[in-house]
Design a protein around this nucleic acid. Sequence first.
DNA 1: AAACAGGAACCAC
DNA 2: GTGGTTCCTGTT
Length: 290
Amino acid sequence: MEITEVENGLILEYVEDFEARHIFECGQCFRWKKEQDGSYTGIAYGRVLNVKSDYENGIVLLGNTNLKDFWSIWFDYFDLGRNYGAIKEALSEDPVLGMAISHGKGIRILKQEPWELLISYIISANNSIPMISRSVGLLSEMYGKQIHYRGEAYYAFPDPVKLLEAGIDGISLCRAGFRCKYIYQAAKMVEAGEIRLQEIASMDIDNARTTLMKIPGVGPKVADCIMLFSMQKYGAYPVDVWVKRVTKHFFFDRDVKMKEIQRFAEEKFGDMAGFAQEYLFYFARDLNCK
DNA sequence: AAACAGGAACCAC
DNA sequence: GTGGTTCCTGTT
């Protein structure tokens, strides 16, 4: 990779396995908005960033940043030190994964913030992606810190304290329905130190899952999403309806239970299950696999 | 306008 | 521990 500093941004060249559309639209994040020019603008770690990529030429343009933030935030956020070529090659031994990977070849799993993901995925339960994005956006607008970029206002995701101050009634304004009480309780547990996300992140996958599931609104699927997308637990294989459908369709072709799918993923993909899940999810949505 | 979409809680068994 | 029902908001 080669980095050039330009006016209010960076040009990255010789970047492999990076396609903004695949990264931001494979279901792992809710705060990146597509712009007219095909770039994406989002907010993470208290910074607003604009991203545009050209997969074939290995070019990524980062707007509204600098070298310091690149090395302290964005290099890790986009996991640019990871060799996705090797992962894709290994997974492609399976022909179904081979197809899925050619559909989403530029997917990278972002290293997002555990607290924001905990709340985002509590909201995701029995909910659709546009509605989840809206609720997370509303919480941020109402209770998060405002940041300006190109004359527009962006909002960081609010701290637990801010949500506690808002109370259940304040939280309910984000239109997350029955999940609002879980959001409030989660904030309470985190603020009280009853749940320590950093500690959970350092546990092995089974202990981390069990501990996360003590939080109301967090079941097996939500726990696996939090672990995969913010705690680098790449053996997690979150099974939502799409992953259930696509796994069932290509690998079973019969009625299967969640537990069977979990065991199958663990045995077939091992510590790469999370990557396989993302390729399959994006593929299933593309195919509208039912 | 009724049917459908989407995970976890909760309660029987 | 498994199975069925309910929760909320929105779209088709």
